[in-house]
Write a protein that binds this DNA or RNA. Sequence first.
DNA 1: GTCAGTCTGTTACCTTATAACGCATGAAGC
DNA 2: GCTTCATGCGTTATAAGGTAACAGACTGAC
Lengths: 170, 170
Amino acid sequence: MKRGVTDRAMPSGQGRFPKRVEAMLDAADAACAAHGARLTPLRRQVLGLVLESDQPIGAYALLDRLKESRTGAAPPTVYRALEFLLERGFVHKVERLNAFIGCHSATAPHDHDDHDHAHTVQFLICGKCGRVQELEDESVRSALANAASRAGFAPGRMTVEVEGVCRDCG
Amino acid sequence: MKRGVTDRAMPSGQGRFPKRVEAMLDAADAACAAHGARLTPLRRQVLGLVLESDQPIGAYALLDRLKESRTGAAPPTVYRALEFLLERGFVHKVERLNAFIGCHSATAPHDHDDHDHAHTVQFLICGKCGRVQELEDESVRSALANAASRAGFAPGRMTVEVEGVCRDCG
DNA sequence: GTCAGTCTGTTACCTTATAACGCATGAAGC
DNA sequence: GCTTCATGCGTTATAAGGTAACAGACTGAC
Ligand SMILES: [Zn+2]
Ligand SMILES: [Zn+2]
Ligand SMILES: [Zn+2]
Ligand SMILES: [Zn+2]
């Protein structure tokens, strides 16, 4: 199916997100602009969908939502957008869940250009409610960096995921 | 295809592993016996295949090897064996790679009944050679447990995976 | 031997992710 | 204007990872 110019000029899904999400999207947009990257309508929409979910969301669940407004959406559509968003640290992948979650520090209004953070992630995964909380604990990071160094290992991306029971579900 | 009793009595793949692997298999067997668990021929074979690989190995790669001697092998065959082996801590899953690796401390001759260890794993993943080294760093574990507690989170299984460059590849 | 529980074979299917190709858009240079 | 190149996306097809469900075979207890 061919798509006309109007689809670009007036992307569906635009403006549909709650205010708090739109604010984060604007912050992400600004952060992109500052680095010569482009938060295209598609990427913005995917990021919005991830951010409005209070739980990690799978790629195919995202795809289903995308299809509501983009008739041509297919797996590569969402995976390519996710690739960009992961690279920039706007979203993270929860490996244990094969699902994606928005990063609140990367999309904070005061964009702290924390590009390294994109690749050093710590999650607390509640096995009851399914919600995931992101940590940024320096003692964990440094303990891990030290342990790696002691093993003669040059550490890069770090994934830390703890499954358990959150405060609300305790 | 139907299989006779002879296949059980003389399971293919038996005795085919290198000595160091057979020693670990015997240790695992003993550990199972001590807990009333059964390291069946299939489970032993799958564990042997995982252990003889010096890299993490995927479920379907295991399946391919299994098929060489077990004509009826299908995905559930290997996944069920892996489920058992994961539960007992004889193998771990590397989440970032969707692959499985043998645990050397769980299959050490002097079986230290480290059942908790099954669910608290730390890996150093070399992005060049693909090999994975397992850590058991207490400072990382405790830093993570503390961070979780501070967040009101009751920690359970912990997954720590660091991607980088190993000593040999540095 | 019979029974219940466990383990495995077997079929079918679902979920997650990527490869490959080509068109559309937009900026850069002539 | 017209080319040229890079990027983003649509589209099709397929790879890779994982489970459900049911039935038959085995094991150990009675
Ligand atoms: Zn983050
Ligand atoms: Zn919870
Ligand atoms: Zn281990
Ligand atoms: Zn290496």
